[in-house]
């Protein structure tokens, strides 16, 4: 599903590479934690999957497509198959829960009938039934993140990228978020989650890829956050 082959990414004006000869394979339906300290290259990894950045060398395949051969014109179609969740939720403050989720379908031109059908289903999936008409400011952080996950998943992507989704949320609420991610994963969606949260990684017992200074230092199935801790 995601295939990195010897990928190196150096940002302009920086001598140290953000990613240094990284090779990873993520299969369809896997749940993978991407761990490592700040600046270790986790976000760069996710940005490369979305083709927001281009690697300096190496090749990246996502959903069977070679990204270096993908024209800019087709990048939006790639992104329709990838859902994204961020630490800061990125909801539209002037739209309610339903409208925030529907927005993702409206802007890719889905018919209204389809939107009316699938949006309530997804809102229920993330556990926000009955809150469709609340505004984001009326919701707790955990609830806002559920809205963001509903938006990321509403178009049934093949891959869900989560960049520190529990970073702004207390540990108790984080468990709920992880349950939703697990539920999404069980529908067959590949989940790739970058995180600092050792407790969550340890409790989930999923595959862990650890980055340090842009290099992969560990790739372990059913792993924990760090062996040293």
């Amino acid at each position: 599903m995601i295939h990195f082959d010897n990928v190196t990414k150096v940002y302009a004006n920086q001598n140290r590479p953000a990613l240094d000869h990284v090779s990873v394979d993520v299969d369809k339906g896997e749940f993978v934690f991407l761990v490592g300290p700040s600046g270790s290259g986790k976000s760069t990894f996710l940005r490369l999957v979305l083709k927001e950045e281009r690697p300096n060398s190496g090749s990246i395949h996502v959903a069977g497509k070679d990204l270096s051969k993908l024209s800019n014109f087709k990048v939006p179609h790639l992104r329709r198959r990838i859902g994204c969740v961020f630490q800061d939720f990125r909801l539209l403050p002037n739209k309610n829960v339903y409208e925030n989720v529907a927005f993702a379908l409206e802007v890719i031109g889905k018919p209204r009938r389809f939107i009316r059908k699938v949006v309530p289903e997804v809102i229920e999936l993330v556990g926000l039934e009955g809150k469709a008409h609340r505004m984001p400011e009326e919701l707790s952080g955990g609830e806002q993140q559920r809205v963001a996950m509903a938006r990321a998943f509403v178009n049934r992507p093949m891959i869900l990228l989560a960049d520190e989704p529990t970073g702004n949320i207390d540990p108790a609420t984080s468990i709920g978020i992880m349950k939703v991610l697990d539920r999404i994963n069980r529908t067959g969606t590949t989940v790739l989650m970058a995180t600092h949260d050792a407790a969550i990684v340890d409790s989930m017992r999923k595959r862990v890829v650890e980055l340090e200074d842009g290099k992969i230092v560990r790739d372990q199935s059913r792993g924990v956050y760090g062996q040293a801790y």
């Binding site: 939006p76 329709r80 990125r90 890719i108």
Partner: peptide, 17 residues
């Protein structure tokens, strides 16, 4: 920029944005 950022992310085409 919020709206357009999300539009980019969910794969809205350039024309739509």
């Amino acid at each position: 920029r919020r709206e357009t950022g999300i539009m980019r992310l969910v794969g809205a085409s350039n024309i739509y944005i």
